[in-house]
Amino acid sequence: MSAGSPLPVGVERRTVAGEETLATRGEPVYGEPTDGDWRAWNASRSKLGAMFEHGMETGLAGGDRVLYLGAAAGTTVSHVADFAGPTYAVEFAPRPTRDLLDVAQSRDRLFPLLKDARSPETYAHVVESDLDAIVQDVATRGQADVAVRNAQFLADDGRLVAAIKARSEDVTADPEAVFDRAVDRLGDAYEVLDRRRLEPYHEDHLAVIATPR
């Protein structure tokens, strides 16, 4: 894969079960292949994993304090919690959150929250300010809006690391047009540092790295 930027401390490229793959160290959670403490992180199942595979400069260094929006069942957030510091995981749907609880049980700096990412005031009394990063993977309409509303949690030099899914905004429109609109809306709160599509790992997804204005 592309050389690109260095991976965060705690994320390595290793050979696990005969395949070269990203990997982190932690309790296995979804039946992923393991090698000793290391467990494979499949970029086709994780937008953040795909960003690392593409060599994007996410600003994540290891040990970061992170707010993860759209944690779902915890597949990606389990890897984030493996290499990051305190990690707040927000998910709106009750059923996947049940699996997220299992992931958080074995990770003592992963804090699961059943909350709506569109309403940050409902978790601002729990999630601390001046965070190093927001990782966002929400599949609702108004994804850029969610990022803008949550900008208040970031430090001035913090990073938004977002995956924008075209189909969640408008199934009929051209994905590039959807992405341009989303990036434009992000401009209300962020300076966009990098954008890149996540093919071949994820179709019609745009990765965006941004920092608060």
């Binding site: 409902t122 601002a124 009394h125 601390e128 300010s129 001046d130």
Partner: peptide, 12 residues
């Protein structure tokens, strides 16, 4: 945690 709200985050 379930029911609280706050206007903005702080260094909790």
């Amino acid at each position: 945690i379930a029911e609280g709200t706050t206007d903005q985050p702080r260094h909790w």
